[in-house]
Nucleic acid binder design. Sequence first.
RNA 1: GCCGAAGUGGUGGAAUUGGUAGACACGCUGGAUUCAAAAUCCAGUGCUCCGGCGUGAGGGUUCGAGUCCCUCCUUCGGUACCA
Length: 944
Amino acid sequence: MDFNHNEVEQKWKKYWQKKGTYKVSNDTSLPKYYVLDMFPYPSGAGLHVGHPLGYIASDIVARSKKQQGFNVLHPMGYDAFGLPAEQYAIQTGVHPEKSTNENIKTYRAQLDNLGFNYDWDRQVKTCEPNYYKWTQWIMTELFSHYYDLDSNKAEPISSLIEKFKTSGSTGVNAANNQESTFSAQEWKEMSTLEKDQTLMNYRLAYRKTGHVNWCEALGTVLANDEVKDGLSERGGHPVERRAMMQWSLRITAYAERLLNDMQPLDWSDALKSMQSNWIGRSEGAQLFFNVTNSSEKIEVFTTRPDTIFGATFMVLAPEHELVEVLTTADQKSAIDACIGEVKNKSERERLAEVKEMTGAFTGSYAINPFNGAHIPIWIGDYVLKDYGTGAIMAVPSDDDRDRTFANKYGLDIVDVVDKSNFAGAGASDKVGEMINSDFLNGMSVKDAIKLMFDKMAQKGIGNKMINYKLRDANFSRQRYWGEPFPVYYDTDGVSHALSLDQLPLELPKLDDFKPTKDGKSPLAKATDWVNHNGTIRETDTMPGFAGSSWYFLRYMDAGNPEEFASKSALDYWQDVDFYIGGAEHAVGHLMYSRFWHKFLFDKGLVPTNEPFKKLVNQGMIQGVIESIYLRKNEDGSNTFMSADLVDEEADGLVKMPVHVDFVSNYGLPNSYLDKDGLQQFLAWRSDYEGSTFETKLGAFTIGTFAIDAKVITVSEVGKMSKRYYNVVNPDDVVAKYGADCFRMYEMFLGPIEQSKPWDTKGIDGVSKFLRKLWNLVHDDGQLIISDEKASPEELKVLHTAIKKINDDIEKLSLNTSISAFMVCVNELKKLECNKREILTVLTSLIAPFAPFMSEELWHQLGEEGSVHHSKFPQHNPAYLVESQFTYPICFNGKKRDEMSFDADANPEDIESAVKANKDLDKWLEGKAIKKVIVVPKRMVNIVI
RNA sequence: GCCGAAGUGGUGGAAUUGGUAGACACGCUGGAUUCAAAAUCCAGUGCUCCGGCGUGAGGGUUCGAGUCCCUCCUUCGGUACCA
């Protein structure tokens, strides 16, 4: 009997569960190691073979760390609130809670099939009240804190109120969106509501009216990172800008820390640069311009104060608050027309016609503070309201966009930087020599920028300023399936947060989840819930990223009813040592969780400043999309065309994805549907019965289809998705090859960071390897094991493998570590080794990769307990010592011969031995030896 | 456009970080076993006109370059009127 993976898997799954093999204790003197997977959103489609890629890698790391003597936290849970469950509910009437729990059940069964070592007692589900109680609590804490720029951390709002009482807004240096200043006296005279509204401009979770991404199809607003190319990330629906009252999180207060603290983290450069780009720090100057016909000043942000003499016009964003004041009577109609046009453009249109600028002249002029020149003030849609100050000084000579605008509207262009010595330089590159710029003439751009900062400060017209692209995060969703805000409004309209003992504020049961066109949350329909003791509850819910911004902390102490996690648990586990997940969360989730973590750190609630020490983005496993060409004929009949009859994208042909199961040779250039496949296809899509198939051999119907005829399909690599009928369920692969084989094969495919199409063509290799390993000690189902002492050769093979695999796991190079296993088993097989001494160690070495087979072997070998508790075997360098080393002898880098020396021979002895070797003379071709280079344990190169 | 990553056999991919390029596996070829096939096992497998040539292209540094430097090309990922 061969290794029966199905039986063995069932047996050990039960054993592990019964013995609590994977339970993790918080109470131990062992050093900790925290391995985390990005928890999945439990979608209705279940797991496909791509999902486990990261889970397998983290499982291997977790298991091997455990074997090395660490107490390893390796938990799993579900990001269970979110749009898809709610969209599904709207379509089918099934309550999101029900469908979510069903999906979770499917996920759990699929995960269990793969033999992961999760401690399920620590599972979290973000949609459960005992979890979102703490999500809500953190929100109330953000609500009751502001960011103090002097202490550079979050401080309680109560101390802000104290400061307002003594010195008004001028007495504080805090992150805010307060537009006007006020004195202590003015603060005292404010009504409760006015005070509340003022505090809102400082709170870290605050409500304000702002321009947000409104998605009508989804009936909700979205955060910036949930919008891609003007379409919603989920569903691809159009998104428009709308002014709405919304909750936001003041993540911008943490911009600098989010940027700087990334430096020491063990993250890839790609990921770090994505985060820095998103934060988008730029250093420049804040500059004030007086205006000829008004007392208002225009504030601009520029990174190029040196070019001020080339500022031939100013541009305000159409939404800028000064536009109304500055527009003169005779320009009013032009400005109104422009604003109207901009408003009507959807976000998508604006992106599509990126180079098309729209603008209009306000009729007013600004005064250049350095030469008194009058500069026309325009509005233009290429200037954004919410970046910088929403106003720019335009320097058409040194900025491409300004030049395009100047050309379109016939505005002056004055060259201020001579770049003739820098041939390849673009308009905005900071190189060249200043010209036409008064006191700056002759200076380099860099010196001129420095000097301008000083001049601006002297004149009192501007300062250094740092700007960020990062915007505050929109935190409201007008949806049902999310955390309700723990906030209510009293009869005066003043906002209050619920206290901890009032939490969780549970989501009321609703039957009608439909969003409303007016932007109200479905919760508004639960009038009993909304009106509570004479107060009104907030009806928006929190976005998907709320629950996922801190879940890694909950795992540390998952059941705790008193705290989000106990201090002792937090002090023990500290932070995540190793985090693995998809790159699609590189900006959103990672940015938000770092922000929340830093906030909790400021409060002294978590012991570390950053949550994720090491982070790896696993690649995506893609699918093959097979499609056939369909032609709808005028008479209503259908013709399917073989792809080899179709050149390019012929008119009137539709690419129709088909189940890859029907396709022969799928994934290869010559994939096709034969008669068999077509029969399956027609059974699946009976609406195409009677169709004609055009092939190289002629046109057929299914009844007349020639045996040799083929309908060639089009193969593409793309997403694995229900709608392409190309989803491969890991359960099927496991049923056929076993979980161990599946795990090792996914790792063997290539580097974990790389995306690649799923392809089972190589899985036999891994399957063969596992069989070989098994057969080292099995014959006809009988265990054949020898208690003889291992030979030096055998020990060398084993310890080479231990070293290599040890190193590879550390580097997360799991594909090469599997190669090392293969080499090891092949060599042992050659040596006909079935020694207990070797096999016991090998079994525990491979346990992280193939937990089922190794556990079975472990017990057959008569070992106690679980192999997953055994110490990870360390290699013994003594077994790897070579007595001799064979050096390649190269002449000018080309290998010509070989010579063996004692492994510890010193280079000088080798050199003289090589020189003395008469056999090498024929390669000298009469030339003299210039130099002999001996690279110990590598090679000898003779330079002639 | 900008930022980041990467280009190695028929294929997936190795290469101790400047030291015998192509490990390991798939595929293919031949052989063994079999009535036959599958499965299994063994051998071979970068190209070659057998001099050599070979890591996207061209140049450079070096005794020696897949690896370092410069120029260019291609692919993928991110991002975009960001002043």
